[in-house]
């Protein structure tokens, strides 16, 4: 009889959930009254609509409000977390735009090493050559694209 044992707790939850709805509805009524006190018809319609949403679709409305606050109000914070928190972490595993930063940092470190007159190991030399070749290729591609664009504009 597990169901019977859990029944009082469910009853308590349902009752308090109803009380919470009453509280939320009271707050909303106050705001609606402040907004529509000059027009009784609009106030009445707004009360009916808000009561319908709060007492029939309370869970959906709550989820929608949470989504609004997460994505609209705190959207910029979320974007910063992704760009400066998540992407550098994923870049370590070669995912996302953070992977380029890792390579660039390594290249700059080795460049500094060369500038200080230290010798590079075989793997470090290999990395430098590969990275330089990649950079060259990228620059060539960019030049070609620019050329094509110019030709398109001219012709």
């Amino acid at each position: 009889m597990i169901e019977l044992a859990a029944l009082p707790l469910l009853q308590v939850t349902a009752d308090l959930w109803f009380v919470v709805r009453i509280l939320v509805f009271s707050y909303l009524l106050f705001q609606l009254y402040l907004m529509f006190r000059d027009s009784q018809i609009i106030f009445g319609m707004a009360v009916i609509v808000s009561a319908y949403f709060i007492f029939v679709h309370a869970v959906s409305v709550t989820i929608l409000m949470l989504c609004f606050f997460l994505f609209v109000v705190f959207g910029n914070q979320l974007q910063m977390l992704v760009m400066f928190g998540l992407e550098p972490l994923l870049g370590v595993f070669g995912i996302g735009s953070g992977r380029f930063h890792l390579e660039q940092n390594e290249f700059m470190r080795l460049e500094q090493k060369v500038a200080q007159g230290e010798t590079l190991g075989a793997s470090e030399m290999n990395f430098m050559q590969q990275y330089s070749a990649k950079q060259m290729r990228a620059q060539q591609m960019t030049g070609q694209m620019q050329e094509q664009q110019m030709r398109r504009r001219m012709g």
Binding site: D15, L16, F18, V19, I22, S26
Partner: peptide, 9 residues
């Protein structure tokens, strides 16, 4: 509302 609140709470 006061009656509901006082009854339950």
């Amino acid at each position: 509302v006061a009656a509901i609140l006082i009854y339950y709470l």
